[in-house]
Design a protein around this nucleic acid. Structure first.
Ligand SMILES: NC(=O)c1ccc[n+]([C@@H]2O[C@H](COP(=O)([O-])OP(=O)(O)OC[C@H]3O[C@@H](n4cnc5c(N)ncnc54)[C@H](O)[C@@H]3O)[C@@H](O)[C@H]2O)c1
Ligand SMILES: NC(=O)c1ccc[n+]([C@@H]2O[C@H](COP(=O)([O-])OP(=O)(O)OC[C@H]3O[C@@H](n4cnc5c(N)ncnc54)[C@H](O)[C@@H]3O)[C@@H](O)[C@H]2O)c1
Lengths: 232, 232
DNA sequence: ACGTGCTTGTGAAAGCGCGCACAAAGTGGG
DNA sequence: CCCACTTTGTGCGCGCTTTCACAAGCACGT
């Protein structure tokens, strides 16, 4: 537990930028589908819903891929962002907890499109194990290590009730999975070096409720005009 | 389009704090269920997975509800956070797009527990309209305005394909809904004063892939020990 | 009544992220 | 060849966020 030096900016792209690159990528692919060859930061920014200076600064972290006076070559930029995000390789995903949400995720076509392949579905309920969901058969959770190793799973998705989530996370980690996407409303405890992201619908609703209440508090009679909302 | 003054900190709780209050609330309710009466910032922080100083500063925005030398009274804090987040009143939610995801959301029990009531389900597909999902019958999207008005819907959830999402959002806005939770992978365009939050699974996976790739780049042969990961 | 020990609440410092504004660099027309 | 125009890449200032560190405050035992 040596006290780390104040982050020597390893070789790095800022987190905030990383979180926006997928948005840019999607916008660029939409342009590509429409046959657009080049795009200005202004135009791309408006599609992606961000400030154009921010977009340029974000892209500058990947290198200088634009041409002054012209803009960015769409195809080249798509490739560069894909490469930076690691989408030029395939990622195997395992989903644990094939209930309401797990089934929806398994049936969702949007993952396969961009380098993510669902390699395994796991559940603990005998009534679910053995069933076929999205042309994969649901295996018993005890096979987790097998599935991870044989399919080369590197991303684990947790869609179990929150009581089971920590246990599943630990098993993922033991099996060597270092990237976890968690839908259960609990804080997961994992060793350093394991990356956990959470998706929590209740939190999103509560944040919306907070802002809605604040708006209602201020608006007495008079019309809106309340500004300063942050649109994520 | 008057240029706004540099944000006079209306009367406000920082955004970052608002996003964490629901996490604290959940931790507190777990303590409450276990019969715990008071909790220190250190303890609560470790449950919630944050730094204790941050927790104290967050809570200080709500007022001084702690007792030095003792900690915080769990029940009182639950109430204060609930009130601040607007959970002491009921919020009606309408879900549009009753497909894989919409059905999972409708069947999810976790919403009702905390002030959110699903008041209406809407879809455009004649094969879905009229069906009963989660003991609500699915109405046709043309009834959106009706449903919003008659049920007092204040939060709209969009779970349609991305091609329809903007249209649905606009109809929500026209009907007077100013809080929207969007699952479709598109940037929504809404007038000022409307609050949009998005949940985008593909983006989460891509961020995980980015970090996983970076870890793999550094680790040549030798075991892990890569530090500096930010766990959200 | 008073000291001991624990915990809160917050000032101060450092790090990040955002957006303005502009120089640098390229394009294209004359 | 030069000039007008467009657009990138970035220096800079500002405000938000996080974390440290500690004085102030409270409980409890004696
Ligand atoms: N459904 C939603 O829309 C929704 C919304 C927000 C959050 N969530 C969260 O997502 C999670 C799943 O929700 P759901 O509605 O799909 O629940 P669900 O009850 O329908 O499904 C949970 C599944 O997990 C399985 N399971 C339980 N313990 C397990 C274990 N130890 N190992 C493997 N599988 C196990 C169960 O057999 C079941 O099939 C929950 O934590 C829930 O809070 C769901
Ligand atoms: N299923 C998932 O796990 C998942 C994951 C990530 C993102 N998403 C996104 O969530 C959205 C929904 O996904 P899904 O898998 O449920 O899709 P789906 O095709 O199963 O369901 C979409 C539903 O929306 C309805 N619909 C279409 N146009 C409509 C309109 N104009 N008005 C009302 N209803 C309309 C359709 O009839 C259908 O029932 C998509 O945008 C998808 O990209 C889904």
């Amino acid at each position: 537990m040596t006290s780390r030096p104040p982050r020597p900016r390893e070789r790095g792209i800022p987190e905030a930028t990383v979180a926006r690159l997928p948005v840019y990528l999607r916008a660029l692919q939409a342009l590509q589908d429409r046959g657009t060859l080049t795009v200005s930061s202004e135009h791309l920014a408006s599609i992606a819903g961000v400030n154009s200076a921010k977009l340029r600064k974000d892209l500058s972290h990947l290198g200088s891929y634009g041409t002054r006076g012209v803009g960015y070559e769409v195809e080249y930029l798509v490739y560069q962002i894909s490469r930076e995000l690691g989408l030029t390789q395939d990622w195997s995903v395992a989903i644990v907890g094939i209930g309401n949400l797990g089934r929806a995720l398994a049936n969702y076509g949007g993952f396969g499109t961009r380098g993510f392949r669902i390699a395994g579905l796991l559940d603990a309920d005998p009534a679910v194990v053995g069933k076929t969901v999205a042309s994969l058969d649901v295996r018993h959770i005890d096979n987790l290590e097998d599935v991870v190793r044989s399919k080369g799973v590197s991303i684990g998705v947790i869609a179990t009730p929150s009581t089971s989530a920590q246990g599943v996370a630990s098993r993922f980690v033991e099996a060597g999975v270092t990237s976890i996407l968690n839908f259960a409303p609990v804080v997961l405890n994992v060793p350093e070096g394991v990356d956990v992201r959470k998706v929590d619908l209740s939190i999103e609703l509560q944040i919306l409720a907070f802002h809605a209440q604040r708006r209602a508090d201020g608006d007495s009679g008079r019309g809106v005009d309340r500004a300063g909302l942050e649109l994520t």
